[in-house]
């Protein structure tokens, strides 16, 4: 998944650094797509948890590239790794680890989500 920076994405008025929260959103979106790609079916999913490590600041004049991999898939849960690179020099900017709940249909998410969190 690719993202071209724009000025509203910046972390601070006076710098050209992209806000980490944008990388976070990118990892969440790419991770979600990886679940669907890994399962080879279009089903509703929900993020259970996501952990980001920001290794380097993301420069606002270069496009970002997110590569998400589905590590393991069970009937209920998907485990995802995602790396975010700077497209120009393929420098690693951030890494993410996420788990997604699969097949969430509205209300069902509540019980499933709670069960998972109490384990």
């Amino acid at each position: 998944m690719r993202l071209t920076p724009q000025s509203w994405m910046f972390a601070q008025e006076d710098t050209k650094e992209i806000c980490t929260s944008l990388l976070y959103s990118l990892a969440d979106s790419a991770g979600g797509l990886a679940v669907i790609a890994g399962a080879m079916e279009l089903m509703p999913i929900a993020t259970l948890d996501l952990r980001m490590d920001y290794l380097r600041p993301a420069n606002g004049d270069r496009a970002l590239l997110a590569v998400a991999t589905c590590r393991h898939l069970t009937d209920q849960v998907a485990f995802i790794d995602c790396d975010i690179f700077c497209e120009a020099d393929s420098e690693l900017l951030a890494t993410a680890k996420a788990t997604f709940m699969r097949n969430t249909h509205g209300q069902q998410f509540h019980s499933d989500g709670l069960k998972k969190n109490s384990v």
């Binding site: 996501l50 980001m52 998410f109 989500g113 969190n117």
Partner: peptide, 10 residues
């Protein structure tokens, strides 16, 4: 540096 978010409810 890092952030870890747990989603509890939809």
């Amino acid at each position: 540096i890092d952030s870890h978010v747990n989603y509890l409810r939809s």
